[in-house]
Amino acid sequence: MTDDRWLSAFNDYAACSFTDLLRRQSPHLLPGFPGAAEDPTPAPAVPHGTTVLALRYRDGVIMAGDRQATAGYQIASRRIEKIFKCDDLSGIGIAGAAGPAVEMAKLFQTELEHYEKVEGDNLSLDGKANKLSQMVRMNLPAAMQGLAVVPIFAGFDEKAGAGRLFKYDITGGRYEERDYDSQGSGSKDARDSLKKLWRRDMGREDALRAALEALYDAADEDVGTGGPDLVRGIFPSVKTITRSGFSEVGEDEVRRVCEAILGERAKAETGA
């Protein structure tokens, strides 16, 4: 009698992957839309997250996103969060169809935590970026119908001792960007803005200012992207990822910088 049961301990290299666990045990919990590939009807206007960006600075990476979700010509949400913590040293910014995007971020977080607990060790930053690439690819059938999810992934690479960032396309293509990048409907404007503002080895203050300037430019030019909302007190969400971990930039600080930007631009407009 041949018995290969012992082999499973080696063949089951995906034992530490949460996504593969779901695929085996509870495929109904996996994100995705079965049948999306066969049905060519485009999806109706669902909420889309608009602009997120990431840029490197001296201590690591800053990630920022506006707070608006847009469905067609309507504002779907004014307070949506688009930058999520993945683990202590990485974060994900989501653009595209908000529903699948938020679910992808949640699955990705669980995936990293699951690996860490089962293996007793963290995935490398490249390993994390690659895993996310597979998740984006899983969403390709839905993306073909207009439910695309295109994240930005950024983190602090302990081996390299620096921040790194990756962008994705709908097929799961993964491209490492050296300095900065942006994703979403206002991404071109944000990127143009960062092109002028970004400097090597920027300090935290300058990097925060550049991120918020770029988001303001995106909101200025793109109808889908929300600007700072002084009436309701809604400001972009900004996170930093450094050697010492993932942290949120406080709302007071973001408000202060936003007000300074608005003040200077108003002054420039009136020529005062």
């Binding site: 034992a15 779901l22 045990q25 919990l29 949640k106 699955l107 669980t110 935590e113 699951h114 089962v118």
Partner: peptide
Amino acid sequence: RIAGIRHADVKGYS
């Protein structure tokens, strides 16, 4: 232990 982590993560996810 691994079975426990799987149980917890799937439950927390769903």
